[in-house]
Amino acid sequence: MYDLKAVPSFDVYVPSTIKELLEILREKHPNAVIYAGGTDLMPMMKRGKIRPEAVVDITGLTELSYVKADNGVYRVGGLTTIQDFATSPLIPEKYFSIKWLTKYFGAETTRNMATVGGNVVSGGERDVPAILTSLDGHVKIVGPQGERLDAPLELKLGHGEIVTELVFPDWGLGSVSWFSKFEKRASNGIGVVTAAVSLKCDDDRVEKARIVLNRVQGKTMGRLTGLEEELVDRRLSSFYLRDLVERHVASIKPAGDFRASGEFRKHVSKVLIVRGLEFCMKYLTGAVSK
């Protein structure tokens, strides 16, 4: 199926600080490719899709590996592995979307190697951008022009820029976040549909909802803002959910491929969102064992 190639020859730089890394990208090798976990990059090199002239191994930048909670904001260093992110004791249980990365994101080896920053910038299975978007999160980027924040779905790195941090606000009391992936096999596959849902309620009245699908238009990931808006101020009840979700999912146009047709994706999208919203409601009304 794949015609695997030898790993191409390249120079390797091994900076140990962000400053050194930016210097390398600015002065020594502007076209250098950044290597963190390598779970996306190495298969791409082996398949001949990319032939870097130079590679910067950033795993020496230990300053970028952390999870912090300060003043209602969570900060996750770009080099934090998926495993460390998902199992961080600083992130409360109600962020199921993050906790469940241990079951939806690749295999244990992949989770031990892949980093949150890598998942945000690289093209593979983009679970972290979906979850981060569902939590109103942002990506912090550092480059020659200094620091800036970008939305995970609009992220475009300029020359010499790197992702240093993911930031998302604590959703506070009465909130919960959910994530799921429908795959063609039991585990460790690529999702046919992935969905992230976050909900915040005051008593049983919806204050804020975020709903993200991996494919809303073609292959583009996006939010269902119409559905989010219509949920606000509603009282929690499964009563109207199906119809409401169906009406909004009707407008998405996910692309089909060898994994599934666009029509099938649309159907699964609806099922997953209903499931997600029902889970969130049950959790918030105490019907799910916490």
Binding site: V14, G38, D57, G60, T110, N112, M113
Partner: peptide
């Protein structure tokens, strides 16, 4: 699969320099 600092990883995707 090998263990690097106690973590299970694929040695086919890790650059050798990363084990320094």
């Amino acid at each position: 699969n090998v263990l690097v600092d106690g973590r299970l990883v694929n040695s086919c995707m890790m650059l050798a320099v990363q084990a320094r």
